[in-house]
C-alpha cells in the first residue's frame, strides 16, 4: 500500500510553511542585495581572509544534511533525523570556528564594511540553521516519546524548512565565498 503523501496544494500546514519560506526568501534577498551592493568595498578583505576550501567542506555537511532529511521524512526515521542534526551541528561548528578566526584577526561586524555585511548575512543564516536544529530536535523528541502521535505532515514541514535553509546557503556560499574567485 502506498500512503498518500500530503501536498502543498491541499494541506494547510505545508502551504503555510511554503508561504512562510517565500516571505523569508524576500528577507534574505534584501540582505544578499546589501552584501552585493557593498561587495567591491570588501572584496580585497574577503579575498585575503576567507578560507574557501575549509568552508566548502563544512558546506558539504549542510548540503548532505538535506539528503539525510529527505530520507528521514520519507521513512519517518529518527535515525536519519539524528544524522541531519549532527550534520547541521557540524556546519554550525565550522561557521563558529570561521568567526573565531576572523574575530581573532580583528575583523568583526564593526571593523569595516566587509565585516558588517559578512557577519550580518552569514549570522542571519546561522540563526536560521539554529532554528532549524531546534525544530529537528523537537521532532526527535516527539518521535521518541510517542512515535504514532507525530503527524506525517510534521516531517514534511520541518523538512521543507530545512531544505530552504540549505538552499539559502547555496546562495550565500556562492555570493560570499565563490564570489571572491571572480
Amino acid at each position: 500500500m502506498i500512503a498518500v503523501r500530503p501536498a502543498i496544494g491541499t494541506n494547510r500546514t505545508l502551504l503555510g510553511v511554503a508561504i512562510f519560506i517565500a516571505s523569508e526568501s524576500i528577507f534574505f534577498l534584501a540582505i544578499v542585495l546589501a552584501y552585493v551592493a557593498y561587495r567591491d568595498a570588501g572584496l580585497a578583505t574577503a579575498k585575503a581572509t576567507l578560507d574557501i576550501g575549509r568552508t566548502a567542506v563544512f558546506s558539504v555537511a549542510l548540503f548532505g544534511s538535506s539528503g539525510t532529511m529527505a530520507l528521514a521524512a520519507r521513512a519517518e526515521s529518527g535515525r536519519w533525523l539524528a544524522a541531519t542534526i549532527v550534520l547541521g551541528a557540524i556546519f554550525l561548528t565550522g561557521q563558529g570556528s570561521e568567526y573565531a578566526r576572523l574575530l581573532g584577526e580583528g575583523i568583526g561586524p564593526g571593523s569595516a564594511l566587509f565585516g558588517t555585511t559578512f557577519f550580518t548575512l552569514t549570522g542571519l543564516h546561522g540563526l536560521h540553521v539554529l532554528a532549524g536544529l531546534v525544530a529537528l530536535g523537537a521532532l526527535v523528541a516527539a518521535n521518541r516519546r510517542r512515535r504514532r502521535a507525530v503527524h506525517p505532515v510534521a516531517w514534511e514541514a520541518v523538512g521543507m524548512y530545512w531544505h530552504f535553509v540549505d538552499a539559502v546557503w547555496v546562495v550565500v556560499f556562492s555570493v560570499v565565498y565563490l564570489g571572491t574567485l571572480l
Partner: peptide, 29 residues
C-alpha cells in the same frame, strides 16, 4: 514586510554592533 525587517536588522547592526550599512563615513550608503 520582510524588506522592512531586513532594513531594521541592518540598522540594529549599525547601531549596536558598530556596523556601516548606512554609514557614509564607513563606506556605507
Amino acid at each position: 514586510y520582510p524588506a522592512l525587517t531586513a532594513a531594521l536588522v541592518m540598522l540594529l547592526v549599525d547601531r549596536q554592533l558598530g556596523g556601516h550599512f548606512f554609514d557614509p563615513g564607513g563606506g556605507g550608503q
